[in-house]
Design a binder for these strands. Sequence first.
DNA 1: CTAATTTCGGATAAGAACATCCTATATTTG
DNA 2: CAAATATAGGATGTTCTTATCCGAAATTAG
Lengths: 143, 143
Amino acid sequence: MFSKACQYAIRAITLLAMEGRKGRRMALVEIAERTGTPRAFTAKVLQQLVRAGLLDSVKGPGGGFDLPPQKARQVTLSMVVKAIDNDDVYRGCGMGLPQCNARKPCPLHEQFQHVRENLRIMLESTNLHDLSMDLERGVTFLK
Amino acid sequence: MFSKACQYAIRAITLLAMEGRKGRRMALVEIAERTGTPRAFTAKVLQQLVRAGLLDSVKGPGGGFDLPPQKARQVTLSMVVKAIDNDDVYRGCGMGLPQCNARKPCPLHEQFQHVRENLRIMLESTNLHDLSMDLERGVTFLK
DNA sequence: CTAATTTCGGATAAGAACATCCTATATTTG
DNA sequence: CAAATATAGGATGTTCTTATCCGAAATTAG
């Protein structure tokens, strides 16, 4: 469904949303440790999120990555997924036809749209603040 | 969502279901042509379906691949997907956690289950006969 | 100002998915 | 039986994703 890069991104940014609420900034090493993701690769992923404007970063001692609470409320899962996986999840034919639309649909076109619409709504209506709250309460886990 | 191998499989076997209703058998070359998929790779995929028992094959002149109408009614999309992609679509955590279950769920566990349950029902309730009927009526297309 | 820390970014490597090629094997036709 | 046809399957190549490594740039602390 999502690429590994995208999965790592969601885990990392959820953690950052939680710590961000306490005004904390996190270094890459700590993020990778607490999410159980490979350091170097996670760095690349976080850089993409920064470039996409979903995350802040600060260099030097005491630096790291940072997601202010205000931003955590605005950023949705959908934005994170799009930043990493493009909008492959939304667009594109389930059966891989180069052209597939309502006028010339693949055999699964109809059924697929429903499933994907479901996914779209889920991703767009979930923000990082909500996800991080469950995490802080100890209801959910990152590794 | 599905691998290319799986997409090719669905396209090919849908076509075979349609032709099978007319008592026809199809050679690999014709299948690849009419589904717009790479020949050699499609061959591999069809072999997997044959080994999984979802499809019949006959060697030699006049041979090819064959899906009898009776079988087309019994074979669901779910079976095809499982034969090619294993049950990765059903199992596995959306965020890639090695262990993710109701007792120790990832932040998306709940939401993800709904989406995937939706997909599961869709795949299990769609059989090849139905798909091929739409194709024969010219309502849907394979390339 | 110097040294230490931390992200940034390019280069490179390892692995999986996708794709092709060629020979072997089975089957039909003449 | 011989020749032609078509799938089966192993070997190989290509491309994309995943992952690592290392030096550059920026920032803080002393």
